[in-house]
């Protein structure tokens, strides 16, 4: 039985790691998912910029949210490649995703993070396995 978009939204809204990072869901509609993060000191690396693990976590989240908003299934990440294009220190960042290709069991999804001025700060591509219950 496929989940509804509201059920999927609720699952993510209660995700502990999402809350631990401080990620907020701006919009969660079919094929239209947008999340944002207010950069706080606890998310920084020793250079005083946002930690690479946070960038990668956000890309993974937005990709799986976007994919699940379309498929209404569960999915798991099989691999992720992230390019770190610019550092950010303060303010907000926003992330969105789109599906490159989707089969019955596998999907490829692109994700992008932009700063509050619209500059791309990170991009990534993930490979996901779709779980049909």
């Amino acid at each position: 039985m496929p989940l509804t978009i509201d059920e999927i939204h609720k699952e993510f809204a209660h995700c502990p790691y999402l809350h631990h990072l401080g990620i907020e869901i701006v919009s969660f509609e079919e094929e239209n998912v947008r999340i944002k993060l207010n950069i706080k000191n606890e998310l920084l690396n020793t250079n005083g910029t946002l930690h690479g693990g946070v960038y990668a976590s956000i890309i993974d989240f937005v990709q799986s949210m976007h994919l699940r908003s379309v498929t209404k299934t569960r999915c798991v990440t099989m691999s992720l490649t992230v390019h770190f294009t610019a550092p950010v220190k303060t303010g907000y960042i926003y992330a969105e995703a789109h599906i490159i290709s989707k089969g019955h069991k596998t999907a490829f999804v692109d994700g992008v993070i932009k700063d509050e001025y619209g500059n791309v700060v990170s991009k990534g591509t993930g490979t996901f396995k779709l779980i049909h219950v």
């Binding site: 699952e11 993510f12 209660h14 995700c15 502990p16 790691y17 999402l18 809350h19 631990h20 990072l21 930690h51 690479g52 693990g53 946070v54 990668a56 976590s57 993974d60 989240f61 569960r74 990440t77 992720l80 992230v82």
Partner: peptide
């Protein structure tokens, strides 16, 4: 618990962070 994802298992973000 704070390391868990929406399905109640380890979030992949932890893997990425540890490797980085």
């Amino acid at each position: 618990e704070e390391h868990c994802n929406e399905s109640g298992v380890l979030s992949n973000g932890i893997y990425y962070t540890l490797l980085d």
